[in-house]
Design a binder for these strands. Sequence first.
DNA 1: CCTTGGCGGCGAATCGGTTCGACGAACCAC
DNA 2: GTGGTTCGTCGAACCGATTCGCCGCCAAGG
Lengths: 337, 337
Amino acid sequence: MNIGEIARRAGVSRSTVSYALSGKRPVTEQTRQRIQAVIDELDYRPNAAARALKEGRTRTLGLVIPPASQRLTDMQLSFVASVVEAAARADLDVLLSPSGGDHDRSFERVVSGRRVDGVILMEIRLEDERVARLHQTGLPFVTIGHTANPHGTCWVDVDYGTLIARCVHHLADLGHRDVALINRSAELVAAGYGPAHRALEGFTEAVTQRGLTSIILTCGDDAPAGEECIERLRADHPDITAAVTVNEAALPGIQRALERAGVVVPRDFSLAGVAARHWAEDFRPPLTAADVPTLEMGASAVELLLERIAAPDAPVRHLLLTPPISLRASTGPAPAR
Amino acid sequence: MNIGEIARRAGVSRSTVSYALSGKRPVTEQTRQRIQAVIDELDYRPNAAARALKEGRTRTLGLVIPPASQRLTDMQLSFVASVVEAAARADLDVLLSPSGGDHDRSFERVVSGRRVDGVILMEIRLEDERVARLHQTGLPFVTIGHTANPHGTCWVDVDYGTLIARCVHHLADLGHRDVALINRSAELVAAGYGPAHRALEGFTEAVTQRGLTSIILTCGDDAPAGEECIERLRADHPDITAAVTVNEAALPGIQRALERAGVVVPRDFSLAGVAARHWAEDFRPPLTAADVPTLEMGASAVELLLERIAAPDAPVRHLLLTPPISLRASTGPAPAR
DNA sequence: CCTTGGCGGCGAATCGGTTCGACGAACCAC
DNA sequence: GTGGTTCGTCGAACCGATTCGCCGCCAAGG
């Protein structure tokens, strides 16, 4: 069931079948219908490999994900979903490539076997050798998140620094004088993970600006770590009244530890941060937070990538999103001493 | 940077380069090294499309996922991760295809454009037209979950019926006389979603066998639905003492609602079920549950698929897993009346 | 010295599409 | 009737790999 078979049965040449399908040259309505009839009958679909070989493009996007062995976070998953969704809308397929760990073979296959027309990279480190590698190959790519040097690369990101700073200002406005930052895990900070670093920067800046006492904590990406973190915080700083966080996965644990300690939010303790919407809404009471627009980010990443594939030499573009902070019910005035 | 370029620079023919790379015919160590040197220098990697065209296989697996618009559950994500992981180990790439909704174009591209060597299908409905379509195309495939007619198709699944029945027996052994089933959403049940149906079957059978009073509830796949479900349950049946569930995503809400109502688990109320491990462990108190072995299932699915690709006419194989129920702390003797 | 055989390497065909140049027929204008 | 267009179609080249058949060379055996 190749194009030759179709051509033979329809009594035309292979090129005519091709033109009938692509419309790149006119074909009589009559022959077009005859061809279409044969195609429908045989359920023919052109071979993707042959087409890719001749056209020099694969109609496929590569999506590089963190190694699957470590559980993907909800937010990462959400990016995957939105990228796949956006790609499907553009009639493109998505090839997954776990990178890091011992999976660099997969990454190499994808980026240098011309298996894809472009790549979307997530979970960017401040210094990321994969970015260097992609620049080297010349393959168009867009990152979700950005490296220490933001120029020269297309990316989409959330402005964690500004958002965390806004949260701090919000808490300061409410009269809080001591604020803690519940950051991502110590490993991620050590590895130079951008959001963790930028959250820290924004926090430090805002805290200094407002003359607040600050406490900085790292916390693993799961509920037990969140519990443990709040216990640590209350043990070391019993009179703390507010915290900001970028660690959405720890929220259920944070909530549990606060409840167990008899701390009423927001009467005794205010919490704000950056989190995907459902994490914020599932928190009790609902969390005042900037909702990370994962869907929009994935879609934008695909959009930027398609632009870049179409015009590889156009100047790079960036998208730094600063979604508004949704006031919910987890922040209130500082308790009187 | 194609194979011809390498051949020219190394002073050999294209076929020799190919043989040097594949080792399918002997090549002098000397020329092999000369070729390798050129390859390293130019960072050459064979064009995947050309190879796929000639070889007739793509070294790529298709993974059909539910439409990404509806948030994927944790378990689905876990399958995706484990499939990608297992495929990477076999040096295969994974092409993602959202299906359902208006994404059938993507599905069609993947299954009939010979873009992949085989397909893994998840979120199977009891009557699933995608399975029929795949049978029609003759493309090897394996499903995670199975259809109403389990014969004729390769699949890997968890035996929800047996597991839920075991949970019911466990509760009956503890003296509980009234047991509720907290199933998946009404929509899923209506759509003929296998796990929901089989959980119901197993539940009904066990409850009948032990002569218990049963209550059957459906519940959406998120925390708020879980809360609402427990409230409904306690309003309609205030004296209920035990429940089983296959709805892991509702667990946080279930926990919250029970706490709020002052119900102490397991003193006043026992809960058991089937859930991915971390859901069970995050529950307070930790949930007595059969841990769905998602990693193993994904890996097995890939394994079965590879077998099937190698020998398409071999008899189909099934893998019905019945993981043991881990006794944790959420079940106890029925309270005295 | 001639034959046989194994080894290393080469050339050409092939996979299944797309695309370019060309060609015949029909049509119009002069 | 002839020349120029336009339209629809065809044939052939091409994309970049793999693989089959063949050939030349050198060593071993008769």
